[in-house]
């Protein structure tokens, strides 16, 4: 065998290069060609365009429905809200939800760097003395898919879930609504001021609405998670909850072939339908207003 070593090496090198060209260039490029001809919409990201042709997202990628320009001021959510004790700064930066839209799933992903796209600055990272601050990356940044990877036994995960659930309860998700109408936006921006007291009568929030997925931009929520938000959205927009319930029910996508996967509601599609049916809401007042 050693006598033939140069020949063996030459054969191995040629077969490596031929297979590399076949599998690494011909195959993916031919598939790209087929995709672009046969399924251009899907192959390019299932993009959604407005009537004027501007791309506003993808039907497969979640968007965040937070208050515009509000992220910068940072919202130090207080804990422990759930137990009704006095508000304390936990150092968690949450982004203020916009109660006029149905919310997708949160992200408990920690970010260690500033995120200029949403106005998260280096200063925000060190708010409250630095060490205690654990900013959560906003789920809007879909160019980097990442989950929190927090273990079920990790106290940070449990604290975040409990805190976010309490926050949503305060905004009227699965709750006796404590705040109504335009004030909801202000409540969302400063929960430590409004939500510190004992929680009002509530029902448990569907788990998918208070946990993050593995990408941090899950486009979908369960039907239960959408229905839980009907009161909040109806209140913030001054609409009849019954009409919103019908809208949600009409946007449930069933399982593939009737059995595979889970039924879900695509949050972006639901919110687009919401704006189409009831009109797009006016811009919110700036933070602190």
């Amino acid at each position: 065998m050693l006598r033939n070593a140069p020949r063996e090496l030459w054969v191995a090198l040629r077969i490596t290069l031929v297979l590399a060209a076949l599998c690494g260039l011909v195959y993916p490029l031919v598939m790209t060609g087929i995709a672009q001809v046969a399924f251009p919409g899907q192959a390019n990201g299932s993009l959604i365009r407005t009537s004027s042709g501007t791309v506003i997202g993808s039907s497969l990628v979640g968007e965040c429905f937070y208050q515009p320009n509000a992220q910068r001021s940072g919202y130090l959510l207080t804990t422990p809200l759930a137990t009704g004790t006095a508000p304390q700064r936990s150092g968690e930066v949450f982004f203020a939800v916009d109660p006029r839209y149905f919310q997708g799933r949160p992200s408990y992903l920690q970010t260690t760097s500033a995120v200029p796209a949403v106005g998260l600055t280096a200063q925000d990272l060190h708010r409250d003395g630095g060490a205690a601050v654990v900013p959560l990356a906003p789920p809007c940044e879909s160019n980097s898919s990442q989950g929190s990877n927090l273990a079920p036994s990790n106290p940070y995960l449990i604290q975040r879930i409990d805190t976010y659930a309490a926050y949503l309860h305060c905004l009227g998700v699965d709750s006796t609504v404590p705040f109504r109408g335009s004030r909801l936006a202000a409540v969302a921006r400063d929960p430590s001021r409004y939500c510190g007291g004992a929680a009002s009568a509530t029902t448990p929030i569907p788990v998918d609405l208070v946990t993050g997925d593995f990408t941090s931009f899950d486009p979908d929520i369960s039907q239960a998670a959408a229905l839980a938000q009907v009161d909040m959205v109806a209140s913030a927009r001054g609409l009849d909850p019954a009409r919103l319930t019908r809208l949600v029910d009409a946007h449930v996508t069933g399982r593939s072939l009737g059995v595979l996967g889970e039924p879900y509601v695509d949050v972006l599609q639901l919110n687009l339908a919401l704006n189409r049916t009831f009109g797009a809401p006016a811009p919110l007042p700036p933070p602190g207003g």
Binding site: R105, S148, I161, D162, T202, I205, V207, T211, G212, D218
Partner: peptide
């Protein structure tokens, strides 16, 4: 009392951190 992990007709429930709704 805060969060429901129970499966029902309208939600899958369970341990959903890190899992896709679909």
């Amino acid at each position: 009392t805060e969060v429901s992990q129970v499966a029902s007709a309208t939600q899958a429930g369970g341990n959903m951190e890190g899992k896709e709704a679909r």
